[in-house]
Structures are given as structure tokens and as C-alpha cells.
């Protein structure tokens, strides 16, 4: 259990930042998709800059994790159809609900009970994908 305590703390940090950054806001998401403000792009962009700099520092200085392991920096495989078609479908859902998976959980914590419908539907979507997977092009 103690092994997982750090993930709970990091998750709490993530939840606070998701809310206070406004990236979970339905209004902000629609504004972003209409290019009416740079706000969301600046948040995502600066997040990527911090992430990318961290990755480069780890790579160049060959830093280890706190437990001394070699840090795994292998990217996910490039599935041309899966990444584009799956990504497109997720984009539809992102605009419809105004939420991506992190915010689904955050909105639940924020007391927006209606989001339970989206969460249950998302689980259903995962199950349908799991069964269709052998038949889908990736």
C-alpha cells in the first residue's frame, strides 16, 4: 500500500491542477476548438515543453529513477490507422463532453454527477473496443 501512496499524492496534485488550470472547463474546451483564445494552447504547449525538457535531461544525464532503475523512455508504437482513426473518434468525444479521461475523474470529484453517464459510456466504449479489436485495422 505504501508503495502506491506516492501515486495517490501525485494524483491529488494532478486533480488540483486540472481544476485550477481550467482545462476541465467545457467552456474553455469549446473556446479552444473555435480558436477564440490561446489560453488552452499555451497550457498544453508549456506542459509539453516542461515534459520534453525533463525527458531530455533524463536522457542526456542518464538519470535513474529514485529506486535506481533505468528510466523507460520508449514511445508508444505508431499504429497509423489506430492512432489517427482512434484519435479522431476521441476528439469527437472530447468536444461533445468537454472532457478527456483525466477530467472525467476530476469532474466526478468536483461533484458534477452528470459526468457519471459519460464515465459509464466510456467504459462501455472500452468494452466494445476490446471485443472488436481483432477485427479493426490498426
Amino acid at each position: 500500500m505504501l508503495k502506491h501512496l506516492k501515486f495517490l499524492i501525485i494524483g491529488i496534485f494532478f486533480g488540483i491542477v486540472l481544476i485550477k488550470s481550467e482545462v476541465i472547463s467545457w467552456f474553455r474546451i469549446q473556446e479552444m476548438f473555435h480558436f477564440q483564445s490561446y489560453f488552452m494552447y499555451a497550457i498544453i504547449g508549456s506542459a509539453v515543453v516542461v515534459g520534453a525538457i525533463s525527458v531530455q535531461i533524463i536522457k542526456r544525464s542518464n538519470l535513474k529513477s529514485f529506486s535506481g532503475e533505468e528510466i523507460n523512455l520508449t514511445g508508444k508504437p505508431f499504429n497509423k490507422v489506430g492512432n489517427t482513426l482512434g484519435g479522431l473518434i476521441f476528439g469527437f468525444g472530447w468536444a461533445l463532453t468537454g472532457a478527456c479521461p483525466g477530467p472525467l475523474y476530476a469532474l466526478l470529484g468536483a461533484g458534477y454527477w452528470a459526468i457519471l453517464i459519460a464515465i459509464i459510456s466510456a467504459l462501455l466504449g472500452v468494452i466494445v473496443y476490446g471485443y472488436l479489436r481483432p477485427k479493426l485495422p490498426h
Partner: peptide
Amino acid sequence: LGVGGFFIGFGTRYGNGCTSGHAI
């Protein structure tokens, strides 16, 4: 919520990631 949620679940698994895993 219903269709949007379904798309989130199906799409992120088909695409193997979301705004956290792929974008950030």
C-alpha cells in the same frame, strides 16, 4: 454525455492514448 463518453472510451483505446498519454 452518452455518445461523447462512448467515443472517449472507444477512441482512446483504439488510438492507444489520450491528451495525457499522447499529447503531454
